[in-house]
Write a protein that binds this DNA or RNA. Structure first.
Length: 138
DNA sequence: GCCAACGTTGGC
DNA sequence: GCCAACGTTGGC
């Protein structure tokens, strides 16, 4: 299983929107590197859901429920989408500032001034974030 | 709301 | 194929 982090501006689409929708097409990614990560996703992969611009914290854990498929919102170009569904909210949201203050996250794209909207998370980083977030997935 | 950083576009 | 101009992202 692989782990990922996706960003969303909560004004556009928030964790609570995901919870009320139950499932959403993660479409509209228009960055090649992010698209390539979408294509590496497997059904069942866990995804940290991060609120950018407002909030600046990881607020929940979601799950990929499909393989990547052609983005239906792309009228031209070779873009991909996956379906995402909520798993659990963070009991304690994990803030960007907390990640920044720990050297174990220094290599994360989100820390390295990343505008990358989809990025990989290592299993050790994932475990730490879940622990900090008070989330048990078992 | 500002603006730095980054990616993309397009004239040459 | 370079690179200036432009648009977008996202922390602050």
């Amino acid at each position: 299983m692989n782990y990922w982090l996706i960003k969303s501006e909560p004004d556009d689409y928030s964790w609570s929107d995901l919870v009320s929708d139950g499932s959403v097409i993660w479409s509209g990614v228009r960055n090649y590197q992010a698209r390539n990560y979408l294509r590496e996703m497997k059904s069942g992969d866990l995804v940290l859901f991060y609120h950018s611009r407002h909030g600046l914290e990881i607020v929940g854990v979601a799950r990929v429920s499909t393989e990547a498929y052609p983005d239906p919102t792309a009228d031209h170009g070779d873009w991909s989408a996956v379906d995402i569904e909520p798993v659990k909210p963070m009991t304690h949201p994990v803030s960007l500032s907390r990640l920044k203050s720990d050297v174990r996250f220094a290599e994360m794209p989100i820390i390295r001034s990343g505008r990358l909207s989809v990025s990989p998370v290592s299993s050790s980083q994932m475990n730490l974030i879940l622990e900090w977030g008070g989330v048990s997935l078992i």
